[in-house]
Amino acid sequence: MIAYIIRRLLYMIPIILGVALLIFCLFTFFGDDPVRVALGQHASPDAIANLQHLWGLDKPIYLQFIDFLKQIVTFDYGVSFSTGQKLSDMFMEGAFVSLSLTAPPFVFGIFISISIALILAYYRDSFIDHMARFIIIMSMSISYLVYIISLQYVLAYELDLFPIMGYEPGLESITYLFLPWLIIVIVALGPNTRIFRTLFLEETSADYVRTARAKGAGEARVLFKHVLKNALIPIITNTVVAIPFLILGAFLMERFFSIPGIGAMIITAINEGDFPVLKGMTMIIAIMYSFFNLLTDVLYSFVDPRVKLS
């Protein structure tokens, strides 16, 4: 087990180097010159040279890349061009806001869709199941944006149930977050239910289900006890891998409801050409993604002793 974890951690090194190389190349060879962006069109050559020196952009390319690697290792990504705030501080603040936006509906949504999927698996191929499948495909065919705009208009503007947009730190935030939470749950319900229903139905053709039935277990007992337990493994993969993306927040939600999470920061950084923020945030999220991938595989072996890590 420990040997496996160490090997996997070592395998993360080429992946993270790859991500670093990708991000570095993208910004070095394709982007606008950050010095030009910061100083504007009519900067004096002296000022440009000064700033280039300050940011280490006058060094040879390979030294710049080594500088970037140093930033990754020390978790010190410098400061934002536009606000001068330290990036690690920005990340901590933004991550908290993003998580409070995405985590509650994520957990709640998974519980609801597992319950619905179990019911659909119980009544499979009945009228209810067919109707539900039809509704799920319909709900998956509506654009995320249309959900946000119409729910915001109806619930916040017409019925005045929630504030239209905005955010305040502390407990106050719940009043602002409630509508985005609701939208996230509704949007994720269709695809999640569909995935879980398939998982449950795949399990029902396994041998242990036949054995349970042969021993006289009722359909409800088979589903809620045997199948649910065994389906936990794929449920965990689907869930844990999504966690880093929760920290990223929901780009659209944060943009739409002016919630100052990581997603909103990245969009602002893109519009202002704020390269350190873009580079740093991308790198941090990529590293977290690799960690959670490893975590998923390790969790596998805890949930299911049959899985041998190799």
């Binding site: 993270i16 991500v19 990708l22 880093p244 969009i267 873009l278 945030m281 991308t282 999220i285 993604y289």
Partner: peptide
């Protein structure tokens, strides 16, 4: 490539 969130990479 999958380690970087899709929407972020597309935007970048």
């Amino acid at each position: 490539l999958v380690s970087v969130p899709y929407i972020l990479l597309v935007i970048a």
